[in-house]
Design a protein around this nucleic acid. Sequence first.
DNA 1: AGGCCGGTTGACGTTAACGTTAACGTCACC
DNA 2: GGTGACGTTAACGTTAACGTCAACCGGCCT
Lengths: 127, 127
Amino acid sequence: MARSNYTISDLAAEFDITTRTIRFYEEKGLLQPERSGNTRIYTPADRTKLKLILRGKRLGFSLDESRSIIEMYDPSHGNTDQYNSLLAKIREKRSQLEQQLHDIEVMMLELREAEDKALEAMAKDKQ
Amino acid sequence: MARSNYTISDLAAEFDITTRTIRFYEEKGLLQPERSGNTRIYTPADRTKLKLILRGKRLGFSLDESRSIIEMYDPSHGNTDQYNSLLAKIREKRSQLEQQLHDIEVMMLELREAEDKALEAMAKDKQ
DNA sequence: AGGCCGGTTGACGTTAACGTTAACGTCACC
DNA sequence: GGTGACGTTAACGTTAACGTCAACCGGCCT
């Protein structure tokens, strides 16, 4: 049903990455597009895989980790061990994010304090 | 008042990093400990700087960015431009974190779906 | 004296994730 | 039939943030 296929630069443009990057992902075994002659042709499924890779990247997963994420979507990999290790990684990410949010909150608070001090100093100067 | 100074391995142990890392930060101009002869001596202020660096690291700031964070605590740098650019970076971090949290939520949802499918498949096999 | 601990300075090695040429093919268009 | 725009492979370059030696020194214990 979903007819449309994509060229490499279609995807590069859509996701704002370079074609080199996409080829690199293939080199690392994360994508396996078909070929028409020498030219790569990407299916919607490939596009989805790319989206997963980029989402993993935003979360700080390595390409290897993104690979296992992708494999979770492949029915032939109903591997419980993989599932559990992936779940563990995601849980770790979650706790990292919580730490980071805390860090950010503290940092913003400190910045506001610094601002206050600066304003005070300016007020004194004006006297 | 606060008497205690620290050796390089004190700090390395406390923050679970290597001494090489601490020297590297000095090499990059983020720390300037005093010396007793050749040996580095770290004051509580140095320790605080190190904490700031590591917090920045957790947030994905580069060492250069951490350097400007440190400079915010130095009274001689009441620089408004720096303050604003730092604030902008922190805001950007915040929005990245929001994106990441969303990514994680979606990912966990998808994992739960994958789990359900796997359980279904196992149930069918049992029949 | 001998040995170990902890510190020091180079200086080269490493890793991930691409960037950057170079050198080439192929199609549509004018 | 030239000229872009787009595609290809191959291979070397880059960057940050350390790791990993090697070779050395000073102090303290026994």
